[in-house]
Amino acid sequence: MDESVIKIENLVKYFDGRCVLDGINLKVSQGCVYGLLGRNGAGKTTIIRILLGLDFPTRGQTFLLGDDSSSLPAEIRGRIGCVAEGHNLIQNYKVDKIIKLCKDISLKWDNDFFEHLIETFHLPLDRKVKDLSMGMRAQLNLSLAMATEPELLILDDPTLGLDTVSRRQFLELAAEIIQKQGRTILFCSHILSDVERIAERIGIMAAGKLVVDCPLEELKKRVIKLRIIFPEKTPESLYITEIINQQTDGREMVLTVANWNNQKQTILETFKPSSCTEIPMSLEDIFIECTNPVRKPVFAGVEEIQNA
């Protein structure tokens, strides 16, 4: 039996004839903290909107907690917490009114935890949502989502608009949530350090495709960047597969490769390089290499990093 909490099958979405999502396949198992990365306009929010049933796919299917997300029953919705990009709260409602509405409608409500959050964030209950700052709206949205004790928490750029202190508070809270067993989190952001802090599995989106889908540590191990200096001119082709990026400058070549192994090492050695040094890569470096639209071979190489 498939126990994926989130399942996306061949998801395609077109907006006005423009392909935004191009055949996305993804499975997130229970208890996983999944970080979905991508540049602005990569299709992260579209995926989340389709998952929540706010938008519809052109082709393909998405499932949340085993149910088709285009027709999620209320009981399933009650097991999902969501912090949407831009924090779509009802703007002309006062904070206490929106809290009451959520409390009355939700299937579960942890009032102690909610009050703890409201106190932590110093949220004013008597102000209208539209009068709150972006950060306060984010905090309110997160508090509302968390109070329902969701099995699945979907966070779409939740730290957008937060100052450094609030972001830190949010991440600490997220870490606290993660510690509660069985919670699945889909965390979507373009702030890589945030994702790196909490995610255990990473998906990188570029040009509507999911070009990377593997555990974070695995990703760091499997993508390497090498500075190779050849005695004379650099060869035109190294005949190495899964090259993500390749830049040449005189005798020097900087090569980013996926799934580096002995075989590739041996092929490289046949070109007798003068030196070959590994350049340490952060998640940000990997992300930039994978999502740079100028470098064409990126996807050919990185597609192999999926489902490790």
């Binding site: 929540l52 049933g53 706010l54 999620l72 029953p73 209320a74 009981e75 919705r77 009650g78 999902i80 969501c82 949407a84 779509n88 709260l89 009802i90 959520c102 409608i105 939700s106 299937l107 989502a145």
Partner: peptide, 10 residues
Amino acid sequence: AFLSTLPVTR
């Protein structure tokens, strides 16, 4: 859009 994130259907 907000209500749809709560346990209610369209």
